[in-house]
Computed example of a mutant assay.
Amino acid sequence: MKVIAMIPARYSASRFPGKLMKDLGGKSVIVRTYEAALQTNLFEEVYVVTDSDVIFKAIDQVGGKVIMSKTEHECGSDRIAEAVEFIAADIVVNVQGDEPFIDAISLSKLINVFKVDVKKEIDLASLKVQITNKKDIENPNNVKVITDVNNLALYFSRSVIPFHRDKEVSVKYYKHKGVYAFRKQALLDFYKTPMTPLEAAEKIEAIRYQEIGKKIKMVETTIEAVGIDTPEDLEKAKQYLNKHV
């Protein structure tokens, strides 16, 4: 089973333009992410997929594998699918370009889903983390996920799911972390399918996989990533780097 990593890397970002090229301890954020993915030793190959000449050159200069997107894309799955179509691979892991401190333990758990899936019934694996704060649960920016008893995703939503009608029954809420491992074919099927109705309504790409019949296995993690979405996040990342690296 050949496992590769793809790091989608857009230069533009509404909240923090050019964040992937910001300096983080003497290296750009995207270079740190690329090198961290290599250092996990989980992947046979690691690629950065970008729409930016600047990012392309940054990865190329450190001897990295980098692919330029041919067209504009709505989401990371589309960008990765275009790039991976002619690359030999069984499992493709989407590594977030703005999370330079990679959670190798959780990624390993995602890959293991496919190692034990001898009947090849699972199309995707993704991460969830329990949330307990009321504001976090009600925040539409936090995508919630509910699963069946086998941890297969039933639905993703920006709304509060499940609805806690019977207060005598205990309910757990889980936030979906947008880290995926795909069977290559599932990724290509997604890419060749137009945006689906519920996906369009919620603006959650995982729903398209469900609407076209793909099975998504959710893996619980307790590790919150150090992501960089704002200048303040970058300062926190610098402090984290100084303490842990």
Rank of each mutant, 00 (worst) to 15 (best):
I216V: 10
T71G: 10
N142G: 08
G76P: 00
K192Q: 15
S12W: 14
K243R: 08
V171K: 13
D166Q: 06
E235Y: 12
K217Q: 14
K134Q: 12
G213W: 00
S69C: 12
F114Q: 00
P197V: 08
E99C: 04
D23G: 06
F182S: 02
I91F: 00
Y240C: 05
Y191G: 01
K203R: 15
L241N: 04
G178M: 07
A186N: 06
S28T: 13
K27P: 02
F86K: 15
L38N: 13
S52A: 06
Y173W: 15
D53M: 07
V54A: 13
H73Q: 10
E205L: 08
F156R: 09
K115V: 04
Q61L: 03
N41T: 09
F114H: 00
F16I: 03
I228H: 15
A13C: 08
D148Q: 01
S126W: 01
P231H: 12
S52M: 12
G213Q: 01
T222Y: 13
A181F: 09
R79V: 07
A206S: 12
D53S: 05
Y174S: 08
V179D: 06
V169C: 03
I4D: 03
A225G: 06
N41I: 05
E235T: 13
S126V: 02
G97Q: 01
L187H: 07
S159N: 15
L154R: 15
Y240H: 15
S159G: 13
E232T: 14
K175N: 11
K172A: 06
E72L: 15
I87V: 12
V66W: 13
T71Q: 10
E224G: 07
V116C: 02
F114G: 00
T33G: 01
G97F: 05
T50M: 13
I87R: 07
H176S: 03
A225V: 08
K203F: 10
Y180E: 09
K217A: 01
F156T: 07
D60Y: 09
L42P: 14
K172P: 00
A81V: 11
V49C: 13
D60M: 09
L187W: 07
F101R: 03
N142Q: 05
K70E: 15
I102E: 07
A225T: 14
K19T: 06
S108W: 06
N141M: 11
G178Y: 06
P197Y: 09
G18H: 05
L198N: 09
A200Q: 12
A13R: 09
N141K: 11
I212N: 10
Y240N: 02
D123G: 09
T230G: 13
A206Q: 10
Y155G: 01
V179W: 05
L42A: 07
D148C: 04
E211M: 01
I131N: 05
K217W: 00
